[in-house]
Design a protein around this nucleic acid. Sequence first.
DNA 1: CTGGATCCATGATGATACTG
DNA 2: CAGTATCATCATGGATCCAG
Lengths: 239, 239
Amino acid sequence: MSKIAVKYHHFCPIALALENIGDKWSLLIVRDLLDKPQRFTDLMVSLGKITPRGLTLRLRELETAGIIERDSQQGRREVWYCLTPAGSELLPVIDALLNWGLRHAMRPPMPGEMVNPELIMRGLTRTLNIRTKSLSGPTRWSMEFPQAAFTISYDGKHWSTSQGTAQNPDVIIETTPESWAKISTVGRTERHQLTKSIHLSGEPERIEEFIAIFGLRAGKAADQKLDSSLKTKPTKNNH
Amino acid sequence: MSKIAVKYHHFCPIALALENIGDKWSLLIVRDLLDKPQRFTDLMVSLGKITPRGLTLRLRELETAGIIERDSQQGRREVWYCLTPAGSELLPVIDALLNWGLRHAMRPPMPGEMVNPELIMRGLTRTLNIRTKSLSGPTRWSMEFPQAAFTISYDGKHWSTSQGTAQNPDVIIETTPESWAKISTVGRTERHQLTKSIHLSGEPERIEEFIAIFGLRAGKAADQKLDSSLKTKPTKNNH
DNA sequence: CTGGATCCATGATGATACTG
DNA sequence: CAGTATCATCATGGATCCAG
């Protein structure tokens, strides 16, 4: 049986919250469920190195904590897991972690590391919103990975992303999640060299705009990492 | 030696953040350091059931991650630990957890559980700010525990708390952290019965105001827990 | 006394295989 | 697809001890 009992013995909202979602995989499960409901095997894939037993334990624990709901209807093979209202309210936690991670924990992807297109897009959207570039106007980009495509939209105020190929995009970006991951985490000099792993098409001025925002050409952008340029200096990460 | 390697093998800001601060004690160490710099033994006390080895490992790991700094000056016995700028930026994470914990994880303190006055006050301040009660005007309360006193101030816009007995308080509240912890986590009916474990003094109208805000008398306040009344319904917690 | 280090026990997690 | 079963490993807790 399960032990499922992280205990701090503190009367403290933070400690009590962490007793619910402070163990190794819980917050990543919440991260994935915030996107959309998922099946057991979906989660196995997106979490990568979790074991079936580990996932089962986490799901049961999150269920008793009132954070997720198990939706199994008879006559259907699948079991869908989704967030309860209380679980959805973990969004600010995930958001704060995403923010901090972007600013202080990013580095190029390591060999064998899962590079999930959806997670890439979520980080990209947030980066664009925080940097709030002033553009000529509403903009639509189509980010096309081999496995999936995403539409990145700027409505004149903020950026959002949705799945699927963009209609009438201003710029089409064709690349792989791995290439984009690397580009967005290295300094300008190396970034400029990696530009060849991206193919851009669209009106020349719009392509220029894209290139300027991401510092994809030498001589213009500041020499700093994309993610870390959100506010202050880059942080090294040495594990 | 240490293993210090939580690894998810995800290229994902959230996962990478959690590799830095996702283990059992790290975020509680950050919680305490956000308040003020602490010595090894201060942390041993405030964390309670951590072992010296465990604390040493966490501190070293947080140091290499660039989240805390070790300040040992020769000629001085103590070693002070404090947050780096990157560490201080974990405030939104702690804040989001505090918020979620207040709304979804609170229950009366259990026997043997540490009830830290400072943490009580932090939760109280946040609760007051979120509920934004309209008061007659600026207000100052003196919360006096046996071990320590705190000043709770409302400037007409928001609430803040500082250490020390309040000058010219509108209301003086004398109680224990344990009593207050229990009062703030039970329903109105029981709360009303616990009122005798608090002693209030000050102008009658100001005392009335205090009583009304915290639902300390029968028949007026809604029957819900203080903390959970922040927005929606209470959540049970069954461990 | 502060700031640890050592040793051992135990509980949490990982790897692999298999099943309703 | 959604798990269970079994075994191995690793991180953490408890108790004790030590150096400046």
